[in-house]
Amino acid sequence: MEVSVQPEDFDTGAEIAALSAGDDGAGAVASFVGLVRHDGHVAAMTLEHYPGMTEAALTDIVAQAGQRWMLRRVRVIHRIGRLLPGERIVFVGVSSGHRGDAFAACEFIMDYLKTRAPFWKKEETPEGTRWVDARESDDHAARRWSDGMAG
């Protein structure tokens, strides 16, 4: 269980490989990579966070996932600072004995990260900069884990 908040990029293949390296009991690895979308007018985005709370919030989310599913390893990396379209923002990787736990935990961690980890995106456009508004669909996605609709 390891979380990182860093400006540096990460090696997706190496992170995925590390989730099961030397672990005979791992039968499944699920991962998610979030990218800066090429969105027409957005030239770049800058990610601000709340140092200290960010790491604590991510660690808490991973711990909650560990209580819900049978997980072997979890890795979360979230980048901060200025990122260009096409760049990686976030990595979530989970290993488990069977695929069901890995798929579900990976999605749960992303849904909770989106609504509970203190990151904020600011977009640069030709018209100036603007803070990205939170999406109601993200709240719905996170809420279904406590409504008995999934998990």
């Binding site: 992303m110 989106k114 980890a117």
Partner: peptide
């Protein structure tokens, strides 16, 4: 105590 808008990471 921190105050902030809804978060938009990920």
């Amino acid at each position: 105590v921190a105050f902030f808008p809804p978060v938009t990471g990920g």
